[in-house]
């Protein structure tokens, strides 16, 4: 202990102390942090009746008892099952509090309940349905045909989506606190539903605009990018030159100045 005490005024001591502190805090947090619940169920069963009950209990305060909409929530007549499946299935609805935008959140209902809610809302008026699995299954890279389809999906993505969602789907800012969320790890079904229903600030990409095959290509591109190995190493969040500049200033310059200080102190 004495040897340690003798070095307590060493220039590196404070840096070490901070490092140890951070490690302990971070380590402790990872033990205490709440874990994601993982519930999976096969083939949801839907019932309009049950959906209505759920709706009245959880959604009607903002959307109105007949889903006709109120000052705090839009009408849901004609939004279709796809909108419900997206909003509730990603935890955006029910919203915890009024905000500029509903954030992605822990899912509050199980698949049967979501299907029932969707069935109820779909019964109010015609709208886009939950997409067929045929189009939400990403194409596997490997064959030339699929590779070209993925590349085409990339082109569609860059022209239509990248200006808000960023080139790698890392997300981007919109006005007044709104944002385009990151797309990594999003269920293909939800990506499809978002395109077809245009949630929040997002425009609708209808089937006449981007046909289901094109939507599938976009999804395939996103998944192919996600699955691809990061050939260049860590991506720094895929945020472009800002994170690179920050890295250069903080880490590289930091290390180099550290080396310069060491060399400057070193006796000849």
């Amino acid at each position: 202990m004495n040897a340690l005490a003798a070095r307590r005024r060493h220039p590196a001591a404070i840096a070490l102390l901070i490092l140890v502190g951070l490690l302990i805090t971070g380590g402790a947090y990872s033990f205490i942090a709440p874990k994601d619940a993982n519930a999976s169920a096969a083939a949801p069963t839907a019932s309009v009746e049950e959906g209505k009950t759920l709706f009245l209990g959880n959604c009607a305060s903002c959307h109105g008892t007949n889903a006709q909409g109120t000052a705090s929530g839009p009408s849901l007549v004609g939004v279709g099952a796809a909108a419900v499946d997206f909003q509730v299935g990603t935890g955006r609805m029910p919203m915890a509090q009024p905000a500029v935008q509903a954030p992605r959140n822990a899912v509050k209902f199980d698949e049967d309940e979501i299907a029932s809610l969707a069935a109820y809302v779909a019964s109010l008026g015609p709208g886009p349905g939950v997409p067929d699995e045929e189009y939400t299954t990403p194409l596997e890279a490997g064959t030339e045909e699929n590779n070209h389809a993925i590349a085409e999906g990339g082109e569609i993505f860059r022209v239509n989506c990248a200006m808000c969602h960023n080139f790698a789907g890392a997300g981007g800012a919109l006005t007044r606190g709104k944002y385009a969320p990151g797309l990594e790890g999003v269920d293909p079904k939800h990506i499809y539903e978002a395109m077809v229903t245009g949630p929040q600030s997002m425009p609708v990409f209808s089937d006449t605009n981007l046909d289901p095959e094109a939507k599938q290509k976009v999804i395939s591109y996103l998944k192919a990018q996600e699955d691809a190995t990061n050939v260049g190493g860590m991506t720094l969040g895929n945020l472009g030159p800002v994170s690179e500049g920050l890295f250069a200033w903080v880490f590289m310059l930091g290390i180099l100045i550290g080396a310069a200080v060491w060399l400057g102190k070193k006796a000849a």
Binding site: R158, V159, A162, M163, C164, H165, N166, F167, A170, G171, G172, A173, A180, L239, G240, P241, V242, E244, G245, L246, A248, W249
Partner: peptide
């Protein structure tokens, strides 16, 4: 391609 642009378009620092 002159038509698209990506979110987070910044120059180097």
């Amino acid at each position: 391609d002159p038509s698209p642009v990506t979110a987070g378009s910044q120059p180097d620092w």
